[in-house]
């Protein structure tokens, strides 16, 4: 067991994948000598050489479009898009080509491509460096979308995503890159939990109390960079006698709605959290799915704590835009007040 930052955990995951499968390639802008702007590919060029770790010309559509051809040739490209706001030049290649080629060829042509995208805000960045584009991709059949929240998940999920024959949009919470956590670098793929399953953590007001009274319980569904904030809000809520289940979705397509439903059936209240704008976002999808699957279990309307429906603001104002622990706690209180 090693204690690693998320950036380093991803680096180790990529190293394992490059070492284990000669068809794995890492490609993108500045992934070679620089090691990526977040150092996720640090050292890979010197270890695996320029044929495996490819500094590309500057063009996102070019990166993804050539990855399609390499995948057709039998390679497994892992593409880095430098920042969330720069993925849109590659939008056609991702949603019309990568996502659909398997269906277009009636299953004959797999597309084992991973598109890594540092995403989300809260780091005081300039425009186009704080976007949350997950809903565009979760809306597109043919893609898998995952968003780890911890170093251990990041290490495990990057390895599993590369091994998957489906294309994966792999979002990385950039403000968590330097968070530390325990990683098991010797873990075998076969021993890992399913890539697309959520994780539910239950926080009770008192240790040893198995189930708090339903009157004071709530589920917080979140993913990626908001998991940390949801946990902080949950810990504060437990100080007030509330039982909180934090459901870290980890995968956004497909959604592990079974885990969400099971949690809501235990807590009867739901708060959904994400940084992306709320309108037509993942929170709307989850609220709709919960109303379809377990409406009668709800004691209160579902609350969404999400980004505002505006272009991402200048960074001095991003604190007012982001779903902070305070806003999550307010939403928890709203669900309890409604009952």
């Amino acid at each position: 067991m090693l204690t690693l930052t998320m950036s380093r955990a991803l680096n180790e995951g990529l190293r394992c994948a490059l070492r284990d499968d000669p068809r794995v390639l890492v490609m993108g802008e500045d992934v070679g000598a620089l090691g990526g702007v977040f150092r996720v590919t640090d050292g890979l060029l010197s270890e695996f050489g320029p044929q495996r770790v490819i500094d590309t010309p500057l063009g996102e559509s070019g990166i993804i479009g050539t990855a399609v051809g390499l995948a057709m040739r039998g390679y497994r490209p892992v593409c880095e898009i430098q920042f969330d706001g720069f993925v849109f030049p590659a939008f056609d290649q991702i949603v019309s080509q990568v996502a659909k080629l398997r269906a277009r060829t009636e299953g004959r042509q797999p597309m084992p491509i991973v598109v890594r995208i540092p995403a989300g805000g809260g780091i005081g960045a300039v425009e186009h460096h704080s976007e949350s584009p997950e809903a565009y991709f979760a809306h597109t059949p043919g893609l898998r979308v995952v968003y780890p929240s911890s170093p251990s998940d990041a290490f495990r999920m990057i390895r599993q995503s590369i091994a998957l024959d489906d294309p994966v949009i792999f979002l990385e919470p950039k403000r968590c890159y330097w968070h530390k956590g325990e990683v098991e670098p010797e873990a075998e793929l076969a021993d890992m939990p399913p890539l697309l399953a959520a994780q539910t953590v239950r926080l009770s007001p008192q240790r040893g109390v198995a189930d708090g009274p339903p009157r004071y319980s709530v589920s917080i569904v979140c993913y990626g960079p908001t998991v940390e904030w949801a946990m902080r809000a949950a810990e504060a809520a437990t100080q007030q006698g509330v039982t909180v289940e934090v459901v870290d979705l980890r995968a956004l397509s497909p959604l592990d709605l079974g885990s969400v439903e099971a949690s809501v059936q235990r807590t009867h209240r739901l708060v959904v959290v994400h940084e992306a704008p709320g309108r037509v976002g993942l929170g709307a999808e989850i609220a709709a799915a919960v109303s379809e699957r377990c409406f009668a279990d709800l004691y209160a309307p579902v609350q969404r704590v999400v980004g505002l429906d505006i272009p991402y603001p200048p960074n001095r104002l991003e604190g007012a835009y982001l779903p902070t622990p305070e806003r999550i706690l307010d939403a928890v209180a709203m669900t309890l007040a409604a009952a």
């Binding site: 390499l70 390679y75 056609d92 060829t105």
Partner: peptide, 27 residues
């Protein structure tokens, strides 16, 4: 089947296949 025939399936989005071809050639 592109691999069996040595011909990719038709590309209807204009120009998308040119990148695929270059990637394939890189491979």
């Amino acid at each position: 089947d592109p691999a069996a025939v040595g011909l990719a399936v038709p590309s209807i989005v204009i120009g998308a296949q040119v990148l695929h071809a270059v990637g394939y050639a890189m491979g």
